[in-house]
Nucleic acid binder design. Structure first.
Lengths: 274, 274
DNA sequence: CTTGCTGGTTCATTATTTAAACCGATGGTT
DNA sequence: AACCATCGGTTTAAATAATGAACCAGCAAG
């Protein structure tokens, strides 16, 4: 593995729970030598990808990422296409809608929209989602190929009693998702929350997923049907906005599972969402 | 220089004008061997910092930066403190207000707010500002130490007829800014636009700057006075929000140049901006 | 069929990275 | 005070990884 990749791996140890990491912690977390780790950290710091908290000497993500993220969003907008449909998705379903983007390390939440009318609503607190335990994750696994599946199966953390523990369960869930066009994660990430998701595509192919996280006790068959129809609609709009197209296999899965796009007959070219 | 830093340097060649760069262009821009460049690029791609446009094979900034930027903004919010004051700054001055953050590579625009009432207003189009040619840049140079000044003097691009060309001019401008507490860039970056700026601080010290970009023909002495007073106010609020404090030297410079904080007598603890 | 470009690859040489041990400082215990 | 553990950081020879000249293959224009 190149030293560049090794250094970059260090960045993946940051999370909302662990926003600052000291040298020794990095040394332990990464399992690499301390001197090596130190050299990597200072190198990352020199380019602004990390910065050091002067008080604790711990490292945190640096300001350079803001510049890069801005540049990325300006030259290749992703949020715009998502923000266009999430409000409607949350409103019609009455639950929390969110969209995620796939990268080398997993699934990153791009935007989310909570439905304010319910007092009990699902609050998303993590920006990075596990592939094997969420509807969003299963959705991308269903269309992501073998390499992504291997990657997911290598790190199967357990979150709830219902989290899938065996590799076979995960592949089976992905197969089901591929068959019906939607992934369903019943309390496998968070107790009391059921996720329903479907994949998103850009010109590269699979690029992310859009999902609705519903309070399990509210999830009637009718609501589930509504959610799926709205997800289909949202996935079409977002994927189109991202320069991608829905694979015929997925179109077929949707149609056989839900019936043709009867909600709005003119099909593809419906009016834009609010 | 570490290979990590060398690889990361490649990311700095991206800009709004050049959002995608091919292998050969990188090889030329960076002046490094093509094989080396290629390996760096694939390494960066493997960790999601870059991705390849499948059509052109050119490289562009990857999705991983979105995750990192989100994490940074959640754990160390910077935009929040800025968004709190920019609208007022733009409204009262009637011009365009913006705030930038300092990192290893220069000054990155964090947020900006245009005043919609004027038909002729300054539109910011770049996310990265040159240190030597903008009010924002001079403001941080005045408080940034010798290393930053050297860095700035090494890359003095010329933008307009009024862009400072000699190193002495830049250091003199920084000295003036240090003396009066405000930096002024008269059409040195864009013709017809005069910038007035003042530095921002976090717990590390100098961290960025806030500035107003005004249409030069509208900039009366009275308006300039208003802008400075509002900048002082904004800089206080933002720096406090960022966990920093205004150095006594800057406080003194402000006071001798503007007089005491007469706009709102109770001084420090005024009510929050809208 | 050149010529000149593109992205990508190979392999011997070279130089950077690596890891064990070491350092000095800090902080809590006995 | 002495002790112990831990912190961030530094040093060394040994090993691994980076390097760059040359080389491919594909493509477009002349």
């Amino acid at each position: 593995m190149s030293t560049i990749a090794k250094a970059m791996e260090l960045l993946n140890f940051f999370s909302l729970d662990r926003p600052e990491i000291g040298l020794s912690d990095f040394h332990r977390l990464a399992g690499r030598d301390k001197a090596t780790t130190f050299r990597h950290l200072t190198a990352l710091e020199s380019v602004g990808l990390l910065e050091q908290n002067p008080a604790t000497r711990a490292y945190r993500i640096g300001p350079a990422v803001l510049r890069l993220a801005h540049l990325r969003e300006v030259t290749l907008p992703r949020r715009a296409g998502v923000r266009m449909v999430l409000p409607r998705l949350a409103e019609i379903t009455g639950e929390t809608a969110h969209a995620s983007i796939l990268d080398a390390t997993g699934l990153t939440t791009l935007a989310h929209h909570e439905n304010k009318s319910h007092s009990a609503r699902v609050v998303l607190h993590e920006s990075s989602l596990p592939l094997h335990a969420t509807a969003s994750g299963i959705a991308v696994l269903a269309y992501g190929g073998a390499a992504l599946m291997d990657h997911a199966l290598d790190q199967m953390q357990v979150y709830t009693d219902s989290t899938m523990r065996s590799r076979d369960e995960v592949t089976a869930a992905a197969d089901t998702a591929r068959k019906i066009g939607f992934s369903i994660a019943n309390q496998s990430y968070e107790a009391g929350v059921t996720g329903i998701g479907t994949p998103l595509f850009d010109s590269n192919g699979i690029a992310g997923s859009v999902a609705v996280a519903a309070v399990s006790s509210r999830l009637t068959p009718e609501l589930q049907h509504t959610i799926k129809q709205e997800l289909r609609r949202a996935a079409r709009i977002i994927s189109q906005h991202w320069g991608g197209s829905i694979p015929p296999a997925l179109e077929n899965a949707w149609t056989t599972h839900l019936g043709p796009d009867n909600a709005c007959a003119p099909a593809d070219q419906t009016e834009k969402a609010s």
